[in-house]
Design a protein around this nucleic acid. Sequence first.
DNA 1: GGGTAATCGAGACGGTACGTCTTGTCTTAGG
DNA 2: CCTAAGACAAGACGTACCGTCTCGATTACCC
Lengths: 207, 207, 207, 207
Amino acid sequence: MVVSPPDPARRNERSRQAILRVARELCVEVGFHKLSIEGIAARAGVGKQTIYRWWPSKGAVRLEALGTSIQLPVEFPDSGDVITDLRAQMRGLVGQFIRPDFMALYTGLIGAAQSDAELAHTLFEHGVKMRSEAARRRLERAQEDHQLRTDVSLDDVIELLYGAFYYRLLLRNRPPAVEQVDAVLAIAFEGLQPRPVARKPRRRSRR
Amino acid sequence: MVVSPPDPARRNERSRQAILRVARELCVEVGFHKLSIEGIAARAGVGKQTIYRWWPSKGAVRLEALGTSIQLPVEFPDSGDVITDLRAQMRGLVGQFIRPDFMALYTGLIGAAQSDAELAHTLFEHGVKMRSEAARRRLERAQEDHQLRTDVSLDDVIELLYGAFYYRLLLRNRPPAVEQVDAVLAIAFEGLQPRPVARKPRRRSRR
Amino acid sequence: MVVSPPDPARRNERSRQAILRVARELCVEVGFHKLSIEGIAARAGVGKQTIYRWWPSKGAVRLEALGTSIQLPVEFPDSGDVITDLRAQMRGLVGQFIRPDFMALYTGLIGAAQSDAELAHTLFEHGVKMRSEAARRRLERAQEDHQLRTDVSLDDVIELLYGAFYYRLLLRNRPPAVEQVDAVLAIAFEGLQPRPVARKPRRRSRR
Amino acid sequence: MVVSPPDPARRNERSRQAILRVARELCVEVGFHKLSIEGIAARAGVGKQTIYRWWPSKGAVRLEALGTSIQLPVEFPDSGDVITDLRAQMRGLVGQFIRPDFMALYTGLIGAAQSDAELAHTLFEHGVKMRSEAARRRLERAQEDHQLRTDVSLDDVIELLYGAFYYRLLLRNRPPAVEQVDAVLAIAFEGLQPRPVARKPRRRSRR
DNA sequence: GGGTAATCGAGACGGTACGTCTTGTCTTAGG
DNA sequence: CCTAAGACAAGACGTACCGTCTCGATTACCC
């Protein structure tokens, strides 16, 4: 028994748009984790089967629905100074993070992705990868320009730079803030070691 | 009408232990998001009411259940060298992160916390705060010992250092790895700026 | 292992009274079939065990509770005329039957007895038997007085006379009514055969 | 907000049959009062919602389930002699009453009806009314044929004639028996007054 | 009158069933 | 053949009671 996949050409665009629109609306109204296929179908005037036919999982609907409203900055400016450019891009990113509606939706998605491998994959592919690749390209140019050490893995660098924002966003110790951008860049570029003076390790006499 | 809370003195410790143990087992067997009160009660030989009596929500059961199995390193060694100590502690942390069972449970909890404010709060208070405060204390000593810049916010430092691991853990681009510890420390302490040579900014003509 | 039965001498009369009183109250307030041991104990300020200690089943509590409020006429008048006496007694009985509270309680009890053999037995022994034996005694005297055929089983007679009221009470085609008493007695004593005229059976051709 | 009732045309007949069949089976196996929606759904391989969708209450399921197995005689023979016909019909009825399985189900239903007004109504409409109307028609013909007094209410007669069987059935003093039919008819048609001899009321001095 | 044993109120316990909700599949009509 | 509609099997939800059990705290009897 072969199950033929649905033919995309026959897809009803009206239904598709209605589904995505309603998903976004309900996400705001009832909260991300209470979003149900049932509710979307009912409000959108669409059969549940129509949703199941075109999206592989609930997470996928939500991802696409919200993907259409998530517009994170992707491209980097290139002023010639990598720190300036990173600062600009990160401020844009954090500026999104701190919008309450965005924060709710984005953390909800990442949360759901923790128990939905496919959603996690799609979320990363469509929501994070582009930005991290853009960052990578910018950092490579910075290395060429001798604005960045060449003995570090750029992936490690990206994770370090952006991890701090996700830490706050997801662990909720305190919300991300635009000022964090400067702190992160200051630490990451200048390093944590005491700057000017010679450092004399203290004598420890423990215990 | 006042509803009196149950009297903890009358609590059946056998049941409590069984519930937490079974919750941990099922979390590994069927996955975090499929954990059900029903399933726990059945396997633990316990009435559902006994669970509802002592825990306010499903998240709370899961949190406590898993809290008992999450044994992340808290205290820092203090060898006199802050980098050495951070490396040791972080390796312990990442060593836990990469255990498949731990990863499943921990990411599941953090995921659930994204749509459960109380769970998020408890999770942070009991699961993250102690470690970040221990880190803070170690970093303060490092500042006293002139091993660390004093012009940075230690909270920012902690978020930067640990954020990288959470980034990988939760965004799932690639799993955390022990080697990441050295990379993070190398970047964070030495800084990203090119080390020895003079840097001559390139002339950009683009755009 | 011998389980000694509870010692009635030590029974707390206050509790007993409270239980029965509350059972009666709740029966009126929430209805017979929603009466719960839990509810009685709570309202009466009594431990559930105290109820279970002294009554073998839920039906038994209800029976005793309601037995205290069911006061059907037992003894027969004896005016010398059996029909007069039956009429008086039956009117008293039906007068109870049509009281809404009594009807609710009594039909509830009989209903519950249909799936509780012990309750059925106790209900009959305490609630019906006395009256049917009193009726039997009156009917025996009527036979001695030549007011009643002697070639009939008095048990059959009693069932016939009272069955009509229970029919209405339990099948609920229409509620029992005092006028029914006269109709029943008229039919039962005079018989259904046409009275004065000779009867000539019709010639049937049907079927 | 209008809740549209389910559309009977879409009903799954397989499920309906399975539910009714299993209800009948379980009623015999575990007893009427232990019949549970949960148990029926499980054994019938049916979702509980499917039961709740089509039947308004537990009593309704039981009623329909058992209605399919209750086949009491309805139509009366008409031999020309009303007593003969009543005897035949009543013997058929009592013959059912004394079947243990029927007795269990029927008394269970009537018992449940005592605390479920709707069930009581349906039970009477579907289970009793037809027979009493058939009886009424036969009795009307008997009046036309001068085999029955015309100065009595036929409803009263029916209640009297059948009440005796329900009395035994529900009050459980003793089970109904076929011999009861003859006794009832003898009493009801011939009357309770002493037959041949003149009756001389005794002189009572009491009161 | 003091000791002791049973009863008391309270309520936690393991369970069963309730009636509701949601999930993902299946079925039916209509276009 | 896709669509809207919605019935279906499955099963978790949180609640209500069941009847048993364990607590201290009276309470009533016996010494």
